[in-house]
Design a protein around this nucleic acid. Structure first.
Lengths: 113, 113
DNA sequence: CAGTTAATTAACTACACAGGAAAGTATGAA
DNA sequence: TTCATACTTTCCTGTGTAGTTAATTAACTG
């Protein structure tokens, strides 16, 4: 399996869990510690800690240590890789998807913002 | 878990396997029977049959029976659902993602092609 | 230093899943 | 009705993962 394929596998695997998707959604509202991420869920802290590790392995989360807290921040690259991967299906997603197609073209030209 | 969340889970789970992603990619070149789908892979037919079933459960594949062959066709809806889900991350994907954002807006207005 | 807080690691259980081999099903052909 | 083709289903094994509690690490606090 190529490197990109392994990365995609890790990303899709990470996104296949609803708790992990909820953690990502939470992080769009700003950084959070593992404890803060755990709060809305009815599972133990170790369980959340493992979810965070899976998200980290996929590159979807970046952790920085501050004292005994580990602040988690969202990383967009893996999501962009999914958009790129979806490019091969644009004709199946309808003509409106041309806008996404255009976005992908820009990406390849290095016009990433 | 909501219905949509379960659908997303099934879709991401299906896409988390490289063999299944390869099967999908093959189907962009046209319909194929299970046997034809199995050909490029070094695994048994039963294994492919099971992969096809996972893709079917996720709604990514549609099967029609013709004699003893089962022709598989790609279905785009789950991929569109992923695009919709990615909408919440558009600001993290950069300004160029606005084009995708516009596409999503069109989708919500019912302007699906 | 002892104690508290934040999070990870370890050890375990339960379950899902990828894979193979072998048997079963369904359709068409001789 | 017998055989071949195209799958699917069943049963099995090994592996991965989500969850738990308990123990451990790391850093600050009094």
């Amino acid at each position: 399996m190529t490197v990109e394929a392994e990365a995609l596998t890790a990303t899709f695997t990470a996104l296949a869990d609803p708790t992990r998707r909820a953690i990502l959604a939470r992080l769009t509202r700003g950084e959070a510690t593992v404890g803060q991420l755990a709060e809305p869920f009815d599972v133990s802290l170790p369980a959340i800690s493992k979810h965070v590790k899976v998200l980290q392995r996929a590159g979807l989360i970046e952790q920085t240590r501050r004292a005994q807290w580990r602040s988690c921040r969202l990383r967009a690259e893996p999501l962009r890789d999914i958009v790129t991967w979806m490019g091969q299906y644009r004709e199946f997603l309808g003509d409106s998807f041309d806008r996404l197609d255009q976005y992908l073209t820009d990406l390849q030209k290095g016009e990433r913002p």
